[in-house]
Design a protein around this nucleic acid. Structure first.
Lengths: 302, 302
DNA sequence: ACGTCTTCATACCGTTTGAGTATGGAAAAG
DNA sequence: CTTTTCCATACTCAAACGGTATGAAGACGT
């Protein structure tokens, strides 16, 4: 069976006669006769009753017409959907994250992506950095977000943004030094660090930054994540140093104070598979780029 | 686009490589390459990513694959449905009736048809005899049931069965003559006739039969249908002469008594379009034939 | 690191199949 | 009875299909 035969048959059915169908299809009449006959032979079904005043459908023809129409439109819409998929406009974007980017960076970024590609479903999962790399390699995710990724062949790491640090102190703590002298705090007060896993990580980076600034704090605890750390701070176990974006939200029992020193910046990065040409990666990548633009512009204007 | 291309693509997608697909399709590998490429060119979409260890789907390919599969199965099932339609196994049988056949003949007949062709929808409508003939001519119905059809070119009339007559009397009427003398009734009692329309009709036939038997009854009323006539009988307006099958049901206020005389028979006929080769007509026709067989056998055995 | 193997792409050829023109046949319309 | 209007058939030419032979490129093993 040929698609051509279905098309011809549908047109003949619509026109009610072979000649008119031929004219609408911009071909001569004999091919219509031949293709329809061929179709009928293959089906073993008489689709049209030929009369001297045209062709009229048999019951079997009616039934087949319905199916032929559906198949043709099915193909047509599939083509459109496939083209949309190629443009990255439909499908499922698989994203993984680890750590604090989930609190402010990813919501903004994915909202922007949703606005740009409303038909794309977004799947989000928490994976450690090593899990993200493994998932990328087997094609399970398109992009991962986090900090301090190790170099890995076949994986591209790019920095999304760099943010300042803040220190979280218990609400009750009132004797806060002014900006620029806040590192003094850590001479008397222990720090709570996070996360515990995935070295090198934010905890390691914080320690190395403090050491560079000449501070060697006492470590009260190293928790799994920022939530646990801030809870410990709230009950007075020590101060927590957090990335700036975390301070956008209210956490009960703690207050945030910026550590405004240029050297004290921590980056958020994203990773993706090298040579991944999938449309969804291209789509999220351009959203990421736009996000970077917006972020830098805002930073400059501040 | 060609159906062949869809088939090839689906097989390549299933096999995951061009060569295996070619083997499964019993062709060589180059045509696969060419057809897939042609398909991709036409769509403007890269469906498969060629690698040295096979072909793997792109996101757009996944989307198109789904549609292609659906279209192909759609076509396959349409072919089957169309063949079934040709055999008269699916579709809508359009039947019209007029008068008393609706009470016993059609229920039995259509039940038998439903058993034989369970997938066929049956549409039933009440049409006068002339309306039936018009509907047949324009192909609106397949078959009509009724009595005393006029001869009409292009329309075949066949007798379905012939049934005896009964007389309906008010429940309260007790002085009923024995079988064979019941025509005496009409010397004293007026008759209610039906139907009013579509001459010649059952009313005309009843009068002519009675006249042949030497009875010339007084006509109390001529009603539209049997229900009205029996209601008049129930309130004592007169006796109603009905076809035998009507007596199978209980009608409140009346009792039926057979008029067992050989000459007093009335036929039920059916009509269809001459030269109608539609599968549904053939199907209902064979059911009608079987019904006749069953009816005659039962008659003989009684 | 090099050769081998696997896989897809290209070139060319014979055959098939498609559409076009010309024409025939049959039934409705005047 | 002729004309018109359909669809079917015969024949021709060009396009497309599939087959064979061969090339190019990356993975894999020695």
């Amino acid at each position: 069976m040929e698609l051509r035969q279905l098309k011809y048959f549908v047109v003949v059915a619509e026109e009610g006669n072979f000649g008119a169908a031929a004219r609408r299809l911009n071909i001569s009449q004999p091919p219509i006769t031949r293709q329809i006959k061929k179709l009928e032979d293959e089906l073993g079904v008489v689709l049209l009753k030929r009369t001297p005043k045209g062709a009229q459908m048999t019951a079997a023809g009616q039934v087949f017409l319905e199916g032929a129409r559906q198949a043709l439109t099915q193909i047509k819409t599939s083509v459109e959907r496939s083209r949309a998929a190629q443009r990255g406009e439909i499908g499922t974007l698989e994203v993984a994250y680890f750590g604090s980017p989930i609190y402010a960076v990813l919501p903004d970024l994915l909202q922007a992506f949703r606005r740009a590609m409303p038909e794309v479903r977004v799947s989000l999962q928490r994976l450690s950095k090593s899990e993200q790399i493994a998932a990328l390699k087997v094609g399970q995710i398109h992009m991962g977000f986090g900090r301090y990724y190790p170099a890995e062949p076949g994986i591209v790491v790019e920095q999304l943004l760099s943010e300042g640090l803040s220190v979280a102190l218990p609400e009750s703590y009132t004797d806060v030094p002014p900006v620029g002298q806040r590192l003094e705090l850590f001479k008397a007060m222990p720090v709570v660090l996070f996360p515990r896993s995935g070295r090198p990580n934010f905890a390691d980076e914080v320690l190395s930054i403090l050491k560079r600034e000449g501070v060697d704090p006492q470590v009260a605890d190293v928790t799994e994540d920022v939530r646990s750390a801030l809870t410990l701070t709230a009950i007075g176990e020590g101060a927590t140093i957090v990335p700036g974006t975390v301070t956008k939200f209210a956490w009960s029992g703690v207050r945030f104070y910026p550590l405004e020193q240029l050297s004290m910046e921590c980056p958020v990065s994203f990773i993706y598979r090298k040579g991944d040409t999938s449309p969804l990666l291209r789509a999220i990548y351009s959203t990421v780029r736009a996000y970077q633009q917006a972020h830098n512009t805002r930073a400059q204007s501040m």
